[in-house]
Each structure stands twice: as C-alpha cells, then as structure tokens.
Amino acid sequence: IRCIGVSNRDFVEGMSGGTWVDVVLEHGGCVTVMAQDKPTVDIELVTTTVSNMAEVRSYCYEASISDMASDSRCPTQGEAYLDKQSDTQYVCKRTLVDRGWGNGCGLFGKGSLVTCAKFTCSKKMTGKSIQPENLEYRIMLSVHGSQHSGMIVNDTGYETDENRAKVEVTPNSPRAEATLGGFGSLGLDCEPRTGLDFSDLYYLTMNNKHWLVHKEWFHDIPLPWHAGADTGTPHWNNKEALVEFKDAHAKRQTVVVLGSQEGAVHTALAGALEAEMDGAKGKLFSGHLKCRLKMDKLRLKGVSYSLCTAAFTFTKVPAETLHGTVTVEVQYAGTDGPCKIPVQMAVDMQTLTPVGRLITANPVITESTENSKMMLELDPPFGDSYIVIGVGDKKITHHWHRSGSTIGKAFEATVRGAKRMAVLGDTAWDFGSVGGVFNSLGKGIHQIFGAAFKSLFGGMSWFSQILIGTLLVWLGLNTKNGSISLTCLALGGVMIFLSTAVSA
C-alpha cells in the first residue's frame, strides 16, 4: 500500500470489461488503480535517471590570480610587451599612462603600459546536455494484498515479495511487465516523455548541487567559461569578468580578483528545477510519464477462499488518510488461513446495510499462523458509518465519521480527471477507425466523469442509474429551450454510458 502517505494521489477506475487503462505517473504523486474483478494496485514513479550526459560548457565562479607582471614604455618608444601576453592562462590589459620627467621619461606624453596576471579557477559549475534516449524511469508497484503497516513504502525485498514489484522503462524499451506472483502480471506500455523539453534544458552542477536550467539563461551567464570537458589546462574565455584592473600608474597597475560568485548564482537559480546525482547518473524529480496498463493477466487472489471465522482485533486505531479513506490494521487469532476477511461498512448496526467501498479488493489472510496481521483500506461514505470486521458474535466494529460532501468530492474528481486527460493529450485517442474513435470517446468520458459518477451514484443499482439517464434524455427531447435540451441530452447520455461502463 504505497499511496496512503502521498498527498498527491489519483484514483483511476477501469471500465467494466476493459483490459487496459491509461494513467499519468508523476514525481511526488501516486496512482491507485481499481477495476472490477482485479486486485487494487498502487503505482508510483520513484526516480527518473539520466546517463551519458555530455559537458557543454563550464563557468568559473571563484578564481585566484598570481605571478603579476607589468612592462611600460616612454612616449615614442613603441608598445610595451610581455611574453605572458601569448599565454592563455594569463589575463592581460594594455593601456596608456601619462609619462614625463617625473617618472623617468625625457618627453612628456602618453606611454604604453601592459599588465598580466595568471588566472586560476578555484571553483566552477558545469552544464551538461541531456539526450531523451538516455532517460530511465523506475516504477514501483504494490498490490493491496496481505501486507501490514511495516511494509508500507518499503522498497527492500521486492524481489521475493509477490505484493510488490519494480520495473524500469526507457525510450528504447518502453514496454515492461511486472510479475506479482499469485496476482498474475501487469503489463506497462509507457510513452517516455517527461513533459520537459530537454532540447531547451541543461543539467547544471555547482558545488555538489544540481538544477535543470534553460539553455539561453545558461549561455548568457557573465562569467569566465570554457567549452567542452575539462582537459586539465582549460582555456578560459572572458577571464576579465572576475578580474579587475585598478587605476594605472606610470610603471605598474594593481590587479585584484573578485570574490566568489556562488551567492549571486544561487539567487539567479531561484525557482529552477532541482535535481540530484546518483553516482555518474543524474536524478530528476520533475515531469511525468504516461503509461497504458494492460490488466488482462491480472487476477484476484483468494476468490475461492472461505470466510475467516475466528476473532479479529484492531492492532491500531483506524486512521484517516490524506485522501479521506480509512486504513485499518487487524490481527487474526485463527489458524484456518488462508481465508477471506469479512469486512464491510454499514450505516447502522441493526440492518448492516453496506455503504462505501473497499479500496483493498478481496482482502485475505494468507498465513495459517496465529496472530497474522493484515492492513486494508476503505472508502467510507460522508457522515457517520460503522466499520464491521468478522462474522457472528466475534465481529468487531468501529464508529467512523467522514466530513465533507459527495458533491465536493465529485467536483474534485472531475477536475482531476480533466487534468489527466489534458496530460494524456492525443495519445488517449485513436482515429484509425470508426470503432477506435468511439472507443476513445468512451475512454475520455470515463477518465473525466467516472470518479464523479461513482461518488454521486455508486450506491444505486445499474438499472436505477439507466432509468435516471433515460429520464434526462426524455426531458431533453421534450424541452423547447435549446440549451436546457442539449444539457439534459448530454447528461442523460453520459449517465447511461457510465452506468453500463463503470464497474460497481
């Protein structure tokens, strides 16, 4: 259960009878995928790494000078000259100064003066180019299975845990398959586009800190620079940016070097996208990844198990997540596992009318040892309800109150669905055939309105939902006002479609 501690969480529900669903994975976010007769899966884009970055340009932001020398000439005696002028490691300046009897010249006039100092770069920052084909995306998957609280967001041991898996995709191999043991396998067909235009970005490294910066900004930095990788004795261009020549006297000129420019660069980098280094690879934390999940090989585990009949206890007080759902960790005293956990939410304890829904599909106890633990997640209705676990006299209950409203949740879900469709863009549509167009249209309606429909009408039977949709269509056909007619027709059509397409 990876997503319960992530604030940016998206719930995606598969269409009834569908074998695939489109998701948008982004750094700092987590996606929970639910479908009829399929286990619930949490998917998170953990890291995006980039390798084989080529150094484009380096800037010196802290330097020192040494070996200063000057040469001067009297008027009419030609130009002052130093051998160091031809050495690229030196920074030199030529000027004219007033000369006369007082400073060793027989004539009054302008004399030539040249001053040089050896330039040494102490600290530099480097910009590297990123090729999209060198990106690698690491995705962690977790099935809502027989897990306890100690396994949440624990990325170790996934090789031997059938509840978890790690997959890596690249532009050259965008397809992967996550093996989930008894739950089958989940196929991923990803489109490795981060949403960032790397043709316009460089990877900047300064003092063990890293950013993504725009090329134009990078090339306009007014500091000494050299092109390409460091060859040991780089040729620094624009050395004068960190060196200041003071007022010249008759035979000498003082040279000083400016202080470190790291603070000024940090100020200019305010708002830039931060990154990290992992050995020789860069780690990015921006952008998104679009994936199509193929769920035809994914299956529920323990459908044929019998119900657990022994007593359950709450190991922890049920807690609310950031998303309005409830996490419950229970301990089973029996030894008759594997068995299914009898769990439901009810409005009252007399009729036990089921409300809400299970995020953890078909929760089971897989071990036959005593005191096995299991964590599950529920989506309670707004208002008061009861969490009921167990059967008969051994069942345990917990009162729950959820604040908020169904309308607010439906609106929030619609906005999130619209954002998801905007990110998917043209990849969500198939114009290759008439059937493809209608299929894409259905998927689009489901992406945007599916979660809201589930919130508003999830407790009704599909037949009642179709009746309401048919009534809206009838009202649309018999209303003389054009805008009201079109609105009723659209709402009725969407409702009829979703009542037959969205899983219960």
Rank of each mutant, 00 (worst) to 15 (best):
E133K: 12
F411S: 09
T313S: 14
Y386W: 05
G184C: 08
S483T: 14
T120Q: 04
E136Q: 01
S503H: 04
L113N: 02
L45Q: 07
L201R: 01
C339S: 04
T315I: 15
E62N: 10
V330I: 13
S503L: 01
E162C: 09
S433I: 02
Y202V: 15
F453I: 12
V347H: 04
E13H: 06
E26N: 04
Q253W: 15
L472W: 05
G482S: 11
K443I: 12
G287E: 00
T170A: 13
F218I: 12
M53A: 01
G442S: 05
M277Q: 03
K409T: 03
I152F: 12
E377Q: 10
G127M: 10
G324Y: 09
G145N: 09
V6T: 00
A227T: 15
G187H: 01
V243F: 08
E191I: 12
G493D: 06
T179K: 13
F312D: 08
K443Q: 14
F11H: 05
G417M: 12
G232H: 05
A310F: 00
V167P: 02
N134S: 09
K443D: 10
S304P: 03
K340F: 05
V423Y: 06
G78K: 07
G436V: 01
V423P: 01
D348H: 07
M34A: 05
V31E: 02
L96K: 07
K281V: 12
L498C: 06
V91A: 13
I359Q: 08
R99G: 10
I152C: 03
A310C: 13
A264D: 09
R420A: 06
G5A: 04
P174I: 08
L307G: 11
T414N: 08
D296N: 15
A501G: 01
M140W: 05
K316C: 12
G127I: 03
G195N: 07
A35I: 03
L201F: 14
S58R: 00
V364W: 03
N362P: 04
T406Y: 03
W217M: 11
V97M: 10
N208T: 15
G337R: 10
D42Q: 05
A422C: 08
G482D: 13
K93F: 10
E44R: 02
T156P: 14
D247H: 04
V364Y: 13
K395I: 05
G279I: 01
L196C: 10
I152W: 11
A490G: 11
F497S: 08
K395A: 06
G435Q: 13
D230I: 13
Q131M: 10
V437Y: 03
M125F: 14
G104H: 06
K409Y: 07
T40A: 12
I65T: 09
T366M: 14
K118L: 12
A63M: 12
A54F: 04
P132H: 01
T194F: 00
G408F: 08
P39I: 07
E191G: 11
E26C: 10
A250G: 01
V41E: 02
Q89A: 15
H226Q: 12
P381E: 04
S455A: 13
G5L: 00
H27K: 08
P224Y: 10
V388D: 01
D230Q: 01
H399V: 05
H288D: 10
A280V: 13
L242Q: 05
D230F: 14
G432V: 02
L196S: 07
P363A: 14
N362F: 06
D37H: 03
L491H: 12
T325D: 08
G127V: 00
S368C: 14
L486D: 06
D87T: 02
K294H: 07
A270R: 11
N371L: 15
I152Q: 10
T313D: 00
V91L: 15
L258Y: 09
D98I: 07
E412K: 13
L113F: 01
I396E: 01
E55T: 15
S433K: 03
A178L: 14
T95A: 15
Q350M: 12
L186R: 01
L491I: 14
E191A: 08
T160L: 05
D37A: 15
L273H: 10
K123S: 12
N134C: 09
F411L: 10
N208V: 07
P171W: 10
G102Q: 04
P342V: 07
S483P: 06
R357K: 12
N371A: 02
V437S: 00
Q147S: 06
L180V: 11
A270E: 11
S440D: 09
S440V: 04
D230W: 13
E44D: 11
L180H: 08
R357V: 02
G232N: 14
F431Q: 12
N134M: 12
K251Y: 02
A361K: 07
G482F: 12
L82M: 07
I387D: 07
C121H: 05
T32V: 01
G17D: 11
G28L: 00
A176H: 04
R252D: 06
A227E: 01
A275K: 01
L289H: 05
N52S: 12
F11I: 11
K316M: 13
V153H: 12
A35R: 01
S64K: 12
D430V: 03
A346G: 15
R420I: 05
E276G: 01
G102C: 06
G5Y: 05
D37W: 04
T427W: 10
L472I: 15
V388H: 14
G195W: 06
I445V: 14
N478P: 05
A268P: 11
L424Q: 10
A80G: 15
M375N: 02
L82R: 00
G104D: 12
Q261G: 08
G432Y: 04
K373H: 02
G106H: 02
K316G: 01
L45D: 11
V364T: 00
L188R: 03
M374I: 11
G442N: 11
T233S: 07
W20S: 03
L289D: 04
V31D: 07
A310K: 13
V494A: 14
G302T: 01
V502Q: 12
C339Q: 07
